[in-house]
Design a protein around this nucleic acid. Structure first.
Lengths: 106, 106
DNA sequence: CAATCTAGTTTGCATTTCAAACTAGACAGA
DNA sequence: TCTGTCTAGTTTGAAATGCAAACTAGATTG
């Protein structure tokens, strides 16, 4: 049967899809909040790069950066927002739909 | 439970990960081969854009473009290569590992 | 008080992405 | 036949994105 798969790329949120941001979101979905150095460690990003991408996620409303102190040193805690979690779930669904087609492959 | 997830972004193949290329690969994983216009239709890409990305996938050895004729009109058939299918499977695994962390979320 | 370390931001270059403009042949009508 | 239009694709240049080097700022250490 030729029921061809529906490819809905618009459902794939580009803000999340970017490789590094995807890593950040995936990590935050399990560990929330996470510190800046922790994210560098886990994702392998440089600090400059991470900073840029966090700003992008923050602009989209997906994370919140809480600038505080750990002792006397500054420490940014990155929180996944409710909006961010919702977007993450949506992304998971979109990807599941997209990636699922191979499953029944012989 | 603080066993933090391992975020292996290097395992996420950038050639596949690009949004449009992801759509092409997903479609080809189910419908192989597919024609150029069919891919335009399914992914919503412009022809210029699709052309560029197919070249990229071809350079990576993931697809093969078979230029033939349907009647007298030219028709390019895009085939997923064995290498491409292998890469696709690898991509699926990488994403599964990355996206899986949320599953047990309450 | 000089050097170094942690934490993070700004900046500029390099790559990537995208669609508009173009090429080329097939068909349709006068 | 030759003019226009349609399908099928490629080239190209402008815009967005991604990345890490260079920089800022305060804390700690010798």
């Amino acid at each position: 049967m030729a029921d061809t798969p529906n490819i809905d790329l618009d459902a794939v949120d580009d803000v999340i899809h970017g490789r590094l941001r995807l890593g950040v979101m995936a990590y935050l979905s399990a560990v929330n909040p996470a510190s800046f150095p922790e994210l560098i460690d886990k994702t392998g990003a440089t600090n400059g790069n991470l900073s840029t991408h966090l700003t992008k996620l923050e602009t989209a409303g997906y994370v919140r950066q809480e600038k505080g102190y750990k002792g006397k040193r500054p420490q940014t805690l990155v929180h996944l927002t409710p909006t961010g979690r919702k977007a993450w779930i949506g992304y998971l669904e979109a990807m599941k739909a997209l990636l699922g087609h191979t499953i029944s492959d012989g």
